[in-house]
């Protein structure tokens, strides 16, 4: 299946075009900064930081983080196709993918609880330190595993 994927016209374009691969990588790092940047700031807020900023006022930023997630899902699929059978068997890549998958679900869960609390008017009283730490660790491992995929 992965070999078939590598030989699709999209995969060949990413692999052979002079600019497609570097362009997708650039999009991927910009998306990374949006996703991990915003989510880590929200996690720091949930851990008790940034006095003077209401938790609820950070919620619209989470929608923006999902745009970054979309950028990386799209650019990530393009990058994956060009070396599908390599990535599919790379342990570090699979660790990265698992962290992103769990991280996305966790973000959705946290966002849901926070939106509900904000609607009820008590988002600032929500206790979510544990989930915030798990979220930070997941993105930390995802970045580390992603970078190591180029080396191992």
């Amino acid at each position: 299946m992965f070999e078939w994927l590598e030989n699709t016209s999209v995969a060949l374009w990413v692999g052979e075009s002079l600019w497609a691969y570097p362009f997708m990588l650039s999009m991927h790092v910009i998306g990374l900064a949006i996703v991990v940047g915003i989510l880590s700031m929200v996690d720091f807020k949930l851990l008790g930081g940034f006095k003077g900023i209401r938790v609820g006022s950070f919620l619209p930023l989470l929608k923006f983080a999902w745009i970054g997630f979309l950028i990386n899902a799209v650019s990530g699929v393009f990058l994956f196709t060009s070396q599908a059978s390599y990535f599919a068997t790379s342990t570090t890549f699979l660790i990265k993918l698992a962290c992103i998958f769990i991280g996305a679900i966790l973000t959705k869960v946290m966002q849901g609880q926070l939106v509900e609390a904000e609607t009820a008017g008590n988002a600032d009283d929500v206790s979510m330190q544990g989930l915030a730490i798990v979220s930070l660790l997941l993105w930390l491992v995802a970045i580390t595993a992603g970078r190591l995929t180029a080396y191992i």
Binding site: V29, L32, A33, V36, G37, S40
Partner: peptide, 12 residues
Amino acid sequence: FIGLSLLLGGLI
């Protein structure tokens, strides 16, 4: 990469 996430995260 971690540094750029913190830098950009705050600045965004």
